[in-house]
């Protein structure tokens, strides 16, 4: 965000700059960085229990986690659940955003927006208890992950909806009427005008949704069939038993994996945005 910072602000805040910087830096180091480093550090201990400061250095706990079927299986379950639920959330979130862009009445728009954000306001525990009650009634769901996937999808819909409808609101409003005047039926407009415009936002929304679902634990606590665990559930269970360095090793591995993947994604999308800006500049000067 360095580019967007107006130098006038730096001048305007004057002597209050120092306390602001100190507060920000303290919050960053103490709340964000140190706890994460502690997790990483405890994972390379040689002891069989979590110890800080770590005793010695070894990567044996990483090997241990990667060869433990409990951890690898839960990772696979999480991947599967997150992938399917993300797909569902992307479809319904995008449809909702498209519908919002076509509604004209202010009241209807505002209610639709409120409705689509409500899943964020509902406490996951309470929602999970509701789904659990459904689960008790309908025995067909108890064996597999259907309810878990659907519930996770609902919780992730708002993220897709918000990102995609922001993208739609920035699109040129004249494009759709132009296409309609030229005789394009509405499915064609959606496919050839709207979707190409919002494809980047759909992808960003999908990444968001995937991250939220992959991280979500409460629904799995109540809805995962016996013997099946998602990765966060496995972590939660492990943290409530004796603390083993296995847990911090697994945490480190998954965090590093996510950081590398998301780092690559933002690098690629950042480069694409820069290219788009360059093209726009060229078009403006031509």
């Amino acid at each position: 965000m360095a580019r967007t910072a107006p130098p006038p602000l730096t001048r305007g805040v004057g002597w209050t700059r120092l306390p602001i910087l100190l507060a920000g830096l303290a919050a960053c180091v103490l709340l964000f960085i140190v706890p994460f480093l502690v997790v990483v550090a405890t994972s390379w201990t040689r002891t069989s229990f979590v110890a800080f400061p770590p005793q010695g250095f070894s990567l044996s706990w990483y090997r241990d986690v990667l060869h433990d079927p409990e951890w690898t299986d839960s990772f696979k379950v999480s991947l599967r659940v997150s992938a399917i639920a993300t797909l569902i959330a992307v479809v319904f979130g995008t449809l909702g955003a498209l519908a919002l862009s076509r509604l004209r009445s202010r009241a209807a728009r505002s209610w639709l927006r409120t409705l689509f954000i409500i899943p964020m306001a509902i406490p996951p525990v309470a929602y999970a208890v509701g789904m659990y009650s459904v689960n008790l009634k309908v025995s067909a769901f108890q064996e597999h992950l259907t309810l878990l996937v659907l519930g996770e999808a609902l919780l992730a819909v708002p993220y897709v909806f918000v990102v995609v409808s922001t993208g739609l609101s920035q699109a040129d409003p004249a494009l759709r009427p132009a296409a309609a005047t030229l005789g394009a039926p509405w499915p064609m407009i959606v496919l050839l005008v709207d979707l190409p415009l919002i494809l980047p936002q759909i992808l960003v929304g999908a990444v968001f949704a995937f991250a939220v679902i992959f991280d979500e634990v409460v629904l799995s606590v109540f809805l995962a069939p016996i013997g099946v665990k998602t990765l966060p559930l496995q972590m939660l269970n492990a943290s409530q038993e004796a603390l083993s360095p296995q847990l911090t090793a697994a945490s480190t591995l998954i965090s590093l994996l996510v950081m590398v993947l998301l780092g690559l994604v933002s690098l690629v999308s950042g480069r694409r945005a820069a290219r788009a800006r360059a093209i726009a500049r060229k078009a403006a000067t031509a």
Binding site: L9, V13, L21, I33, P232, M235
Partner: peptide, 28 residues
């Protein structure tokens, strides 16, 4: 505000901390 008015090294540190926190799970 600190990200907006800080010198470069503070901006970088704060953005890094923010990204660490956004990209690691609540559980971790």
């Amino acid at each position: 505000l600190a990200i907006a008015v800080g010198p470069v090294w503070i901006k970088v540190t704060l953005m890094a901390g923010l990204l660490i926190s956004l990209w690691t799970s609540v559980m971790v």
